[in-house]
Design a protein around this nucleic acid. Structure first.
Lengths: 196, 196
DNA sequence: AGAAAATGTGAACAACTTGCTCACATTTCT
DNA sequence: AGAAATGTGAGCAAGTTGTTCACATTTTCT
C-alpha cells in the first residue's frame, strides 16, 4: 500500500476498489483485469486507485491476501474433533460452497492465472501449509491416530478433489446444485471413513 | 485450416506448429501464447504458420480438437464392464496420468483460459456429453442397474474430483507421485463401490 | 474562518505488444 | 523446364494499458 486511508471516505474507496477487482477477476479472469476497468467498476477515478496501490501487482496481492485469509478463517471454524464424519463433511461443504458464492471464479483465477509477487502459489507457502494441515488433521482424527506424515497424501487428494468439484461447479454456475453437494458430501465421508 | 498440407514436409511443419502451441499453452498459459512465439518454438517462420491457420483462434481450436479427441480415445479403451472396480480405477488413473504427462497444464488452459470459437466449454458440447456419459456408464455398471439420470450427479462429481486432483498435481509437477495415484485410486473405488 | 492535510479527478502519454501481410526465395512434383 | 507447393521474416497498423501529474474538492485542525 502506498498510503494508508485515514478517513472513512477513503477507506470506502479502497474497499470499493478491492471489491471491484475481485469481481472482475472472477468474471473475466486475469486477462480482463486492467487498472482502468477496476477503477471504473469501483466508481472511482484511476488516480484514486494509484493513491493507495503503487502498482497493479500490489492490488492483486491485496485481493489475494484478503480472499485467502477469509477462506482459511471460514474453514477453521469447522473442527473435526467431536463430530461425526458425516456432520463434518456436511458442514465443510456448506462452508466451501458459501465461500465461493460471492465470486465463484476468484479462487481459481488467483491460484492459476494471476501472477504474484509473494509466493502464494508455492507449495511451501504459508497458505498451502495451513490449508493442507487442516485436512491432515481431519484425516488423522477419523483414523483415530496422531497426525501422520503419511496422511499428507490423503489430505492433499481429498483437498484437491473438493477443489476440483467446486471449481467445475462454479464454472457451470452450479455451486448451489443440491445434487452436487450431496454427492460431494458422500465422497468426503467415504474417503475419511475408511483407513488407508 | 486455410490450406491443406499436401507434401510430407508441410505436414511436418503443421505438426511442429501444433506441438509447439501445446507446449507453450501448457507452460505459459494463454497469456504467453502468441503466434510469433509459437512459430519460433516450432522452428518455423511466422509466415508458414499463417499459411495453414487463418488466424490465432483456429490454431487454438486445432490444438484443442486434437487434445480432447486424444483424451476421449484413451479413456474409451478402458471399459467398466467385466472388471472389478479396483481394476477399473487403477487403469483409469494410469490412463489419465499418462494423458497429462506430456503437457501437464494443457487440459486446464484449454478449458479454463483459452477462448474458443466452437463451444467446447459449453456444458452441452459434444465433448462434455461424451466425457460425462463415460463416467455415468461406469457408475451404472457398478451399481448394477441401467444407466440412470440420477447417476449423472455422481458421474459429474467423480469426474470433477479426478480432474481436480490431476490438475493440482500437474501444477505442482507431481503427476507421477505414487502416493497421490494410490490415494486417487482409493477415492474412485470407494465412490463407485457404494450406491448413492 | 482560514490553513493544512487528506482525498479525488481524468485527460494524456510513453512504451509496448502482437496479429497478420506480402513480396520474394526455395523446394518438390509433373 | 514449368508449375505448384512451401517457406521466409521484416515490418506495420492498430491497438492496449499501466501510470503520471497538475489541479479540484472535501475534511480536519487550530
Amino acid at each position: 500500500m502506498r498510503k494508508e486511508p485515514r478517513q472513512a471516505r477513503s477507506r470506502a474507496t479502497v474497499e470499493a476498489i478491492v471489491q471491484a477487482g475481485a469481481h472482475i477477476l472472477s468474471d473475466e479472469g486475469w486477462a480482463g483485469f486492467t487498472t482502468n476497468r477496476v477503477a471504473e467498476l469501483a466508481g472511482v477515478s484511476i488516480g484514486s486507485l494509484y493513491q493507495y496501490f503503487p502498482d497493479k501487482l500490489s492490488l492483486v496481492d491485496a485481493i489475494r491476501h484478503r480472499h485467502l485469509d477469509d477462506s482459511i478463517a471460514v474453514m477453521r471454524k469447522i473442527r473435526a474433533d467431536g463430530i461425526s464424519p458425516a456432520e463434518f463433511a456436511a458442514q465443510l461443504v456448506r462452508a466451501v460452497v458459501a465461500a465461493h458464492s460471492v465470486y465463484p471464479g476468484l479462487h481459481r483465477v488467483l491460484l492459476d492465472e494471476a501472477p504474484s509477487s509473494e509466493e502464494y502459489r508455492n507449495p511451501s507457502s504459508a497458505f498451502e501449509i495451513e490449508y493442507l494441515s487442516y485436512y491432515a488433521e481431519a484425516v488423522a482424527t477419523y483414523r483415530k491416530r496422531q497426525p501422520n506424515p503419511a496422511d499428507h497424501a490423503s489430505a492433499r487428494v481429498i483437498s484437491d478433489a473438493i477443489d476440483g468439484v467446486i471449481h467445475n461447479a462454479a464454472r457451470r454456475g452450479a455451486i448451489d446444485d443440491p445434487a452436487m453437494q450431496r454427492e460431494l458430501v458422500r465422497l468426503i465421508i467415504l474417503f475419511l471413513g475408511e483407513p488407508g
